[in-house]
Simulated scan of single mutants.
Amino acid sequence: MAKSDHKRHSAKHKIDRRLGVNLWGRPKSPVNAREYGPGQHGQRRKKPTDFGVQLMAKQKLKGYYGNIGEKQFKKYYQAAARGKGDTGQNLIGILECRLDAILYRSKMVPTVFAARQIINHGHIMLNGKRCNIASVMLKPGDEIALKEKAKTIPAVLDAIASVERDVPEYVDVNHDKFTAKFIRIPTLDEVPYPVQMEPNLVVEYYSR
């Protein structure tokens, strides 16, 4: 048991090192010399590695993108872990590349669920071709446009007129033409989440 315990601890330290933060506030963490940002409150949690905390972080992120299925979400995590750099940042980047996410970011629909519905109904052109798959991954430079029929949908017009949220800088939108261009894959701090997302805890959930 002692051997596996040691293995588990060293694996957790490896995650700490990779993300550059002490996720669980442990005194033996290799990154304790680093300063805590205001968002890291792991040191105040009684059980920083608690399964429920990680699960909640995962469910929050999955739910935000329209309740992505577990199988699909785990594939995104695996792709993020294979990529270079910070796995949590990579995961956010992948989620933000989805067609439904970018349509939502463009403020041409009120919700991610509405984005998915409009895509499923064939109202979207991706680089000039009809695309009805919400989970298609966009690349920087890709352009989306609403088809003529969708330009009169009340939910679309209401979303464009709404001042509740802004279009982030990584999406270039022309609401007069009902078009949007995906500029670049964003970092976590560029994504306009209304609540704090903790992709680091999602990484820990899958790294158990």
Rank of each mutant, 00 (worst) to 15 (best):
Y65T: 09
G52N: 13
Q72N: 11
F51K: 12
Y64R: 15
F73C: 13
G66D: 08
K62V: 07
K71T: 14
A57K: 01
G52M: 07
R45Q: 06
K60V: 13
K60A: 13
T49G: 00
K58H: 07
R45G: 00
G52P: 00
L55M: 10
Y64E: 13
K58L: 12
K58P: 04
Y64A: 15
N67T: 14
I68G: 09
V53D: 10
Q72Y: 12
D50L: 04
K62E: 09
F51D: 03
F73W: 09
L61H: 05
G63E: 05
L55G: 03
T49K: 01
R44E: 09
P48I: 05
P48C: 05
K71V: 15
L55T: 10
L61G: 02
L55Y: 05
G69A: 14
R44W: 04
K46T: 06
Q43L: 01
D50V: 00
I68F: 13
E70K: 11
L61T: 12
N67A: 14
K60S: 14
L61E: 06
L61Q: 06
E70D: 13
I68Q: 11
Q43M: 01
D50F: 01
G66C: 09
K62C: 03
A57W: 01
M56Q: 12
Q59H: 12
D50P: 00
N67F: 14
Q43E: 01
P48Q: 07
Y65G: 05
Y65S: 06
K47W: 02
G63K: 11
K62Y: 02
A57R: 04
K46P: 00
G69F: 07
Q59K: 15
M56N: 09
G63C: 06
Y64M: 15
K71F: 09
Q59A: 13
A57D: 05
K71Y: 08
G69D: 12
N67W: 09
L55E: 12
G52V: 03
P48M: 07
K47E: 03
Q54V: 04
N67K: 15
A57V: 06
Y65F: 15
P48N: 04
K47I: 03
G66T: 14
K60P: 01
Y65E: 07
Q43I: 03
D50T: 01
R44I: 11
K47Y: 03
R45P: 00
N67C: 11
R44Y: 10
G66W: 07
